[in-house]
Structures are given as structure tokens and as C-alpha cells.
């Protein structure tokens, strides 16, 4: 079919829990995209993931209101905070990293946990092997004030 691109958008959608509330409803609804079909397809594709984990999702939509989606793995910061056991804070109930990273250590994770995170995120990272992916995760940990032991 003559897929004429109309636009793209990137949303953070919780795995298995997409629904018409923000951001999905307004973001898709303003563009006339079929919200319920998106939610149905997204929830089906993420049913085997940890429910509620935030998934960056790139939605490409076409002139006839059809769409495709590319669901990424949750951000490294999500995995790191979870591994470090940081408690959720704030309005959105998310764990908080360091406010002065580099000078402040808020938590620690093990090298084994870093490897597990690297393996989980491998498909979305610009790395050719797990060791390369681990270096990227270590960089994220450092910027968040999380020390690796």
C-alpha cells in the first residue's frame, strides 16, 4: 500500500497497561489515530514484559490513520534505580537519582546487576557485545550517582 508518512511521535507507555489517559489519549487523539487499536496492540506486544515498566515507544503514522510502533526497552535509569533499590518519590512515584552526580553517591549496584541490565537493553544500545553495552550502563550509573561494586 502507498504508505504516505504523516508523522512520528515518541511516548513513554507502561508495559501491558496502555490506556486512553495521558499521554496516549491526547497524543494519539489529537492526530485522529485509533487509540483503542493502539492500546490493544501495545498491550499484546508487551504482555510478557514486567507490567508497568516504562517503554519508550516510537509511533509512526500514515495519512490514512494506520500506524506502526517500535517498542524500546525501558530506560537504563529505570533498571538501575530498581536494581539499587531506590524508593519511588514525587508525583509520579518514581525513584530519584543523585541531585549532584559525580559528588554524591545515592546507591550501589553490583557488576552482575550491570551485566543483567546490559543484556536486557542490548537490542536498543549502540554496542556490538555485552561488554560494550555494560560500559554504556556504567556511564548511566555514574551520571545518576550510583556506584558499581
Amino acid at each position: 500500500m502507498a504508505k504516505k508518512l504523516a508523522g512520528t511521535m515518541k511516548l513513554q507507555v507502561p508495559a501491558g497497561q496502555a490506556n486512553p489517559s495521558p499521554p496516549v489519549g491526547p497524543a494519539l487523539g489529537q492526530r485522529g489515530i485509533n487509540i483503542m487499536e493502539f492500546c490493544k496492540a501495545f498491550n499484546a506486544k508487551t504482555q510478557d514484559m514486567e507490567q508497568g515498566a516504562p517503554c519508550p515507544t516510537v509511533i509512526t503514522y500514515y495519512q490514512d490513520k494506520s500506524f506502526t510502533m517500535d517498542i524500546k526497552t525501558p530506560p537504563a535509569s529505570y533498571y538501575l534505580k530498581k536494581a539499587a533499590g531506590l524508593k519511588p518519590v514525587g508525583k509520579r512515584n518514581r525513584p530519584k537519582g543523585a541531585t549532584t552526580p559525580g559528588r554524591e553517591t545515592v546507591a550501589t549496584v553490583t557488576a552482575k546487576q550491570v551485566r543483567e541490565i546490559a543484556e536486557a537493553k542490548m537490542k536498543d544500545l549502540n554496542a556490538t557485545d555485552v561488554e560494550g553495552a555494560m560500559k554504556i550502563i556504567l556511564g548511566s550509573a555514574k551520571s545518576m550517582g550510583i556506584e558499581v561494586k
Partner: peptide, 9 residues
């Protein structure tokens, strides 16, 4: 349904 393939009319 307007969903994951082109050709909704």
C-alpha cells in the same frame, strides 16, 4: 480497523 497496516479506506 485503522490499525497496524495501510489500507483503511
Amino acid at each position: 480497523e485503522a490499525a497496524m497496516a495501510f489500507g483503511t479506506g
